[in-house]
């Protein structure tokens, strides 16, 4: 029994390295069927806070409003016609799991805000999801620092329903819960209200390293 306890403690301290090894092994033998069932394949654990994964409405629009000069109502096609940003970054969950090298395509949040014309009193974004529950927020400064994107492609394909399609946020250098799924509303507000997960115990400081990266991103 003590040996089981010891193994458990060792696993907690060094498990992340073993985990990386197992992910590599499973990938190298192309055990995709198996890897999707066994823990350690380095895949997403795909959360939803409502009754299942919500389906996008047929007439999906992304609305940008609040403290802006020109409120926007964008279809997926409208969004895709804007200048695109490509990113390949790790997706890090606050609870520990990580998916490395995820490819994203989307429109920079800051660019989208400029497009709508930010009023001087605006300081933050408030995001809403068409699941009706999930909310998130970022300050204008955080949006610039992270280079956050409003993403419509992930893992080399249109974002699937489980992963928050058709449109979700991706915030580099911040924990995964910031990357709100099923994004349908972006509102410019005077201060960042805590989002769904922050209200449910996740830290308001979502920087993976605890603080913004040293050099601001260009």
């Amino acid at each position: 029994m003590l040996s089981v306890l010891g193994l458990g403690a060792l696993g907690t301290l060094f498990g992340s390295h073993v985990q990386a090894g197992i992910s590599g092994l499973l990938n190298s033998v192309h055990a995709n069927g198996l890897a999707s069932v066994l823990p350690g394949g380095g895949q997403f654990t795909i959360y939803t806070v409502t009754n299942g994964y919500p389906a996008a409405p047929a007439d999906y629009r992304l609305r940008v409003g609040g403290l802006v000069e020109r409120p926007l109502s964008l279809s997926l096609g409208d969004l895709q016609s804007l200048p695109a940003t490509h990113l390949t970054r790790d997706f890090q969950c606050v609870t520990g799991w990580v998916v490395s090298g995820v490819h994203w395509v989307g429109v920079r949040l800051s660019d989208l805000a400029d497009h709508a014309g930010v009023q001087p009193s605006a300081r933050a974004f408030r995001f809403t999801s068409f699941d009706g529950v999930y909310t998130e927020s970022l300050t204008l400064e955080q949006a610039r620092q992270t280079g956050a994107i409003v993403a419509y492609s992930m893992l080399g394909a249109p974002i699937t329903r489980e992963h928050g399609g058709p449109v979700r946020l991706y915030v580099p250098d911040m924990f995964g819960y910031k990357a709100i799924k099923w994004l349908s509303g972006i509102e410019l507000v005077t201060q960042a209200p805590p989002g769904y997960w922050e209200q449910n115990g996740y830290p308001v400081n979502a920087w993976i390293s605890g603080q913004p990266p040293a050099a601001p991103k260009v």
Binding site: G11, T12, G15, Q19, G40, W97
Partner: peptide, 17 residues
């Protein structure tokens, strides 16, 4: 630290199996 959380996830999931 984050590496402990990852380790705990690893142990918890595999031990569950």
């Amino acid at each position: 630290p984050l590496s402990w959380r990852a380790g705990a996830t690893f142990v918890h999931n595999w031990l569950a199996v």
